[in-house]
Design a protein around this nucleic acid. Structure first.
Lengths: 136, 136
DNA sequence: TTGAACTGGTTTAGTGTTGAACTATCGGGA
DNA sequence: TCCCGATAGTTCAACACTAAACCAGTTCAA
């Protein structure tokens, strides 16, 4: 694969993602949530500390502070000091937060699926495996 | 593939792209350019009008106004009124703009390729095939 | 123990982005 | 010809984002 081909693929891929975000923004907004906030919620189980979350989602720490604050105020997230390390704030989804997160991810998945419908189930699994290697 | 898996797939893809952007930001910056400005340059040939560009790159028109203004001021872009429709501003890369664009896209491609390098030759071929189906 | 270096998280101040409203032009129908 | 609705692009005020600096708590070597 030549360099210019890789750049082209990358660019198309980027456009695909931007377009999916734009498509679901309105529906996700109806849940009282922004798309980026939805991403935060979706990773809380796996990365329950703000600094971890920020690294996983590739965003600066102050931005995460802001999102966590908003999500907590909205009652979607709980936050408590970690007794083992008083610097850390352990995060957890509230029941409402989990519900909204699942609905939002379904919206996102639907929009994405509409575009990747060209791939068979097997191919989708394949793609997932490859992306996991790339992001690991 | 369940919906939640599709969401996971989307999330992985998104993280990959964000991470590549973060990686090249400094090098592209050395060219006197932001990554998003680079994207604008890369699409000018194909979409020579601001409104078209904004749609193609999925960004609002005022943002495009700003980028075009900056890129023109930097001497990377030329802008002239379209004689056939006085509302339109036809855009074209200057020689300097084309050079910078090509260098920037190479940086982007290299960063992408560095990650693709984790995959075996067979896996790379697989990935390429899948992405081509997705974006083709 | 102490304190220097590090990590988690927040605040602030400045920059970047964008929705809403605007101007100018176009295109088509009466 | 004269509207009227639509489109290209811009302006501006409001909002979102983040770099830099900061505080608090932890770790570990001396």
């Amino acid at each position: 694969m030549t360099k210019i081909d890789a750049a082209r693929l990358w660019s198309l891929n980027h456009r695909l993602l931007m377009s999916v975000i734009a498509t679901v923004a309105a529906e996700v907004g109806a849940l009282g949530l922004e798309v980026k906030e939805l991403f935060v919620l979706s990773e809380v189980d796996e990365h329950p500390y703000p600094a971890e979350l920020a690294a996983a989602l590739v965003m600066p720490k102050p931005t995460m502070t802001l999102y966590v604050k908003r999500l907590e105020a909205a009652g979607l997230l709980r936050r408590e000091i970690d007794p083992d390390d008083l610097r850390k704030h352990r995060l957890a989804l509230t029941p409402a937060g989990r519900k909204v997160m699942q609905r939002g991810m379904t919206l996102l998945a639907d929009a994405f699926a509409a575009r990747v419908g060209r791939l068979s189930a097997g191919e989708q699994a394949q793609l997932r495996g490859l992306l996991e290697k790339l992001t690991g």
